[in-house]
């Protein structure tokens, strides 16, 4: 099987390749199936990517979905479709119009999904927006400004990102989990077994069945102990 290599500035058609290496500015029209996708610079794919690994430094724009075993990007990943990848590590940012399904999503930078996110570990440091459901075993969000719809998890940890002096606001419409430790959280409905809230939290409705620890100053409008 052939390799696809673009160095400098170039355009190519998609297809089946052993390896795809894009260094500089490269655009590919059509779907790519490969074992390795790598390079640095700016890669634009007008189609989908199915790859074993995707390692890139720079910007990757994908018109459709990505299927991969592992993704490691220093830079930006922007995509219109779903992301199906076992392990995803991104330093920079990820924006997807679709869903994510995999084992681990770790991002330092901006994280944005218009759809649902489902994985074992969801660990982000940076501003996060998920319009669908975030369903994970372990959720850790360190942020200054984030907006999440539903978080369904075993363990949830929400913290203010320490690099900022700004007042943090991490908003979630609904959280249901076993254990939660949170600061700077604004939430309409929080249901959990064990809850630990810092003084910076504002919760409209809290329902818990195990232990509740609240710092003085935390605002909870309604508490129900099951």
């Amino acid at each position: 099987m052939e390799n696809l290599k673009i160095a400098g500035y170039g355009k190519a058609s998609g297809g089946n390749f052993e390896k795809v290496v894009i260094t500089g500015y490269g655009s590919v029209s059509g779907d790519i199936i490969t074992k390795e996708f790598s390079g640095s610079g700016n890669a634009k794919v007008f189609g989908a990517i199915a790859t074993g690994s995707l390692h890139y430094v720079g910007e990757v724009d994908v018109d459709s979905y990505i299927r991969a075993n592992s993704i490691d990007i220093t830079g930006q990943l922007r995509m219109n479709g779903d992301l199906l990848a076992s392990i995803v590590n991104i330093t920079g940012g990820i924006t997807s119009q679709g869903n994510y399904k995999g084992k681990s999503l770790m991002v330092t930078g901006t994280t944005q999904f218009l759809g649902d996110v489902s994985c074992d570990t969801f660990k982000v440091s940076g501003n996060t927006k998920i319009s669908g459901e975030l369903c994970a075993e372990f959720v850790m969000i360190k942020s200054v400004s984030s907006k999440l719809n539903e978080i369904h998890a075993h363990q949830v940890e929400i913290k203010k990102q320490s690099i900022s002096f700004k007042k943090a606001n991490i908003y979630a419409e609904e959280i249901e989990c076993t254990d939660i430790v949170a600061e700077c959280l604004t939430c309409k409905k929080l249901c959990a077994t064990n809850v630990k809230l810092a003084k910076t939290c504002v919760i409209d409705y809290l329902e818990y069945s195990g232990k509740l620890e609240m710092e003085n100053g935390a605002t909870v409008k309604e508490i129900v102990k099951l």
């Binding site: 489902s118 994985c119 074992d120 369903c135 994970a136 075993e137 369904h152 998890a153 075993h154 363990q155 249901e176 989990c177 076993t178 254990d179 249901c191 959990a192 077994t193 329902e207 099951l226």
Partner: peptide
């Protein structure tokens, strides 16, 4: 309801969503 289900079966939110995933 989800609340009643968890009460009746003695499982946690974490277990329920893990099994869903």
């Amino acid at each position: 309801s989800k609340k009643d289900l968890l009460k009746k079966t003695h499982i946690s939110y974490g277990q329920l969503y893990r099994w869903k995933r």
